[in-house]
């Protein structure tokens, strides 16, 4: 977290020569425009989501213009959708399994990467990071072709597991590969040094890592809903996800702080 305080940008008035007064004005203007930009960006990020949230209470649930009444019916509809729940369960299982695999493999490898100096470790590191620069669709296609041609034979009972791009096993495997670079980055950074300047970088990597593994959550179900534009069910589910993640994130950000204090790496947070 930043250690600067506001005074950095606000020169002490007493010291300022008259010629710098307009500087202060420009500073103010600049700062003002920065805040404006920030506010606009916030709007950009949030308006579509807010509209979705409003529509989750609306009937009919497709356009703002046509809203006749506010209701919880959409929520009832969504919650009573068995497919949604089974998709949710499946997605949680996928996220847990793939994150566990990636973490175990990544942590183990990071020990070696930071402890030994063998040359092939660099090769490993390069390949370990590779998933970050290969678009998901490409690796996904690669894995599908690979599974289909090399392993998937119906008599092995694998085809349903491996061929379907949305099956449990291929998705877990693909996500574990995708999560690996993030684990490697976080853990090796941790092990190399406890330099506090890495704090925010780690937070960031951790954030990326979490996102990677939150993506499969209800994805398949959502995908069908979106393809079929089933707004009445989709809006409430998406809204509930926003709410749940808001809570989880708030907790995570504060817990992160606590660990920072414990590790002695946070000194001037409020």
């Amino acid at each position: 977290m930043a250690t600067d305080t506001d005074t950095d940008t606000e020169p002490d008035v007493a010291d300022v020569a008259g010629s710098r007064l307009d500087h202060r004005l420009v500073d103010r203007l600049l700062r003002g425009s920065l805040y404006t930009v920030a506010a606009l960006i916030m709007l950009f990020l949030w308006v579509p989501l807010l509209i979705m949230i409003v529509l989750s209470f609306a009937d009919p649930a497709t356009t703002l213009a046509g809203v006749e009444e506010l209701t919880l019916d959409n929520y009832q509809l969504a919650v009573s959708d068995e497919n949604m729940w089974s998709a949710l369960r499946g997605s949680l299982a996928i996220a847990t399994a793939s994150a566990t695999i990636a973490t175990v493999l990544g942590v183990l490898a990071s020990f070696a990467l930071t402890r030994f100096g063998y040359r092939f470790l660099n090769v490993f590191r390069t390949f370990g990071i590779l998933p970050m620069i290969i678009p998901g669709v490409i690796l996904g296609v690669g894995l599908r072709i690979y599974f289909r041609e090399v392993f998937a034979r119906e008599w092995l009972g694998l085809v349903a597991l491996l061929e379907s791009p949305t099956g449990f096993v291929p998705v877990v495997l693909a996500h574990s590969v995708y999560g690996l670079p993030f684990v490697l980055l976080v853990v090796t950074a941790r092990l190399y040094t406890f330099d506090e300047s890495l704090e925010s970088f780690e937070d960031f990597i951790r954030a990326l890592f979490l996102t990677k593994f939150s993506t499969p959550v209800v994805t398949q179900w959502m995908f069908q809903q979106i393809e079929n534009l089933n707004a009445p069910k989709l809006n409430p589910v998406a809204t509930m996800i926003v709410a749940i993640i808001a809570v989880a994130l708030a907790v995570a950000m504060n817990v992160g702080n606590v660990t920072g204090y414990v590790a002695g790496t946070v000194d001037d947070e409020e």
């Binding site: 949030w46 989501l49 509209i51 994805t219 998406a238 926003v242 808001a246």
Partner: peptide
């Protein structure tokens, strides 16, 4: 971060309405 965690699909979908 919040919209960021809210999944790609939901965010893409929210623009369908827009």
């Amino acid at each position: 971060l919040l919209p960021f965690f809210t999944m790609y699909l939901v965010r893409a979908y929210s623009w369908v309405l827009m």
